[in-house]
Design a binder for these strands. Sequence first.
RNA 1: CGGGGCGUAGCGCAGCCCGGUAGCGCACCUGCAUGGGGUGCAGGGGGUCGUCAGUUCGAAUCUGACCGCCCCGACCA
Length: 570
Amino acid sequence: MRITQLISKTLREDPPEAETASHRLMLRAGLIHQVAAGVYAFMPLAWRSVRKIESIIREEMDAAGSQELLLPSLQPMELWEQTGRRAAFGDNLFSLEDRRGRSMVLAPTHEEVITNIARANVQSYRDLPVILYQIQTKFRDELRPRAGLVRVREFAMKDAYSFNADEESLEQSYQAMAQAYRNIYRRCSLPVLMAEADSGAIGGKDSHEFILPTPTGEDTVITCPSCGYTANAEKAVGAHAGSAKEKPKAELLPLSEVSTPGVKTIAELAEFLEIPEAQTLKAVFYSADDQLVFVTIRGDLEVNEIKLKNLLRCNELRLATDEEVTQAGLVAGSASPIGIQDIKRVADPSISSGSNFVVGANKPDTHLRNANYPRDFQVDCLSDIALAQPGDMCPHCSARLEAIRGVEVGHIFKLGTFFSETLGALFLDQNGQQHPMLMGCYGIGVGRLLAAAIEQNHDDRGIVFPTPIAPYQVQLVGLNLTDERVKEAAEQLYQELWDQGIETLYDDRTEAAAGVKLNDADLLGLPLRLVVSPRNLNNSVAEIKGRQETEAQLVALDQVVAEVQRRLSQ
RNA sequence: CGGGGCGUAGCGCAGCCCGGUAGCGCACCUGCAUGGGGUGCAGGGGGUCGUCAGUUCGAAUCUGACCGCCCCGACCA
């Protein structure tokens, strides 16, 4: 490919809207073009990378014994109502009407359709296991697209679905997919962490996320530097500092009121009374599918809304509004679990990890000292709903946990039988007994993988493409192409490289200054750069340099192709 | 949906307060020079000023409504 034939241009300056490195560099290098919020066109260079990533994914999926197929994106709404996922996805579901007024969905994922395909084609345990996959565009009307290709509304995704007769077989499929994922990341030069993850409200047992660590990531994983325990913060279990094991229970003192004028927050309360935050209990109010829930947790901890949502089995969970709280007769800032009866009460076990806590009195400007569970109040449900924090103790080895930000570049689930039961995907076992198939699903975002690869592999000059996913392997730069000798030599090299099957991008611009060309080469970041110039030509050499090397190597012109081949095969 | 910001040439921005010929940089076109890290000089093309309505002799500028985009939060199989 010749740069003079390429449609996209590079930008000299950083696009101001781009906050993350991958977004900024992809715009500057002319890889992507935004069409709407969270909707991007892939320009020719990026598309070459995407196709390489897809090839890697296909190779690993096929090697793991799964088969590719193609599924429709346009699906009837009824399918989504059958499984209840119209409500589960809510406004994230893109929907439309056809000319007859039938409601249709632009599929955000394909479990419903694939399960129906399994139902129609699998009748016997002899047909199992089977793993199917697709690489297709999916649609999700995200509240807020961001960071270029990281969170978008239309995106290519590889989704694989396994159908198994029993748990053991499901575990095998799950492990095969996990290994395929590790292979894919390795080939894309992505050092990912495999983290235990929340499996969502609908069924599911095991679930793991693959996280690429980066400070600009939108996910947080909690990890143990000692034993390697790694989990998404939504899922992670941490033993909080100052919990019961460390502190023997003090003698329970009688409840007493204390005046706390103007004190609203836990921080203010702790400061006012000169006690640690862990010596208080915090009240938080949620609306779970429009039912008010009173949550109590130790003052220094935060509520993990995912855990709470799973516990309550609700579709929509949000903080209650001030009106809802007041209407329920609660006093925000001084709310108390003591004396609450008509409201659903949920608490974290941390409320019994000490004694003689300070809580609200449900009277303005007043709190109570020496509250103790269960002496002074009861709850409907006591369950771990706390957000794990760095500094907590690892549940496996008791080392201190750390927090890492990252981008989710893959997610695998054991779905269980939710879809197969709901949609009737049944099979007969050896004994003629009918069972729902066990299912797993395994997703990887293709565009996000490209963004993650750039996020991980760049420097202050531009992208540093990993060779397997670089749009081209070599950037051939001709300096001063008005010099006929240079032009001839460069053209000849260009021809020879392609003759040897080496994907080469040739900067054949005659008018661009040397600095422009060299900077563009660094920005695009192909693995190897070849420079042909009058200076080199006088000595019958060309210059070869790896993207991350500081010194170029001089190679005799007739040895250049061999040297390129040698370097690329390393 | 809450908070903040922005829509003027392909991109980045000024002009708007104080209404009166639409401007700058990059990019693009022509010519000459230059030729190893975003080079110089000269000339040139390109804009329904987001949309609609209103005020006015006259609106990029004032008023109103709507639309879109970005950032933070909530959300995220």
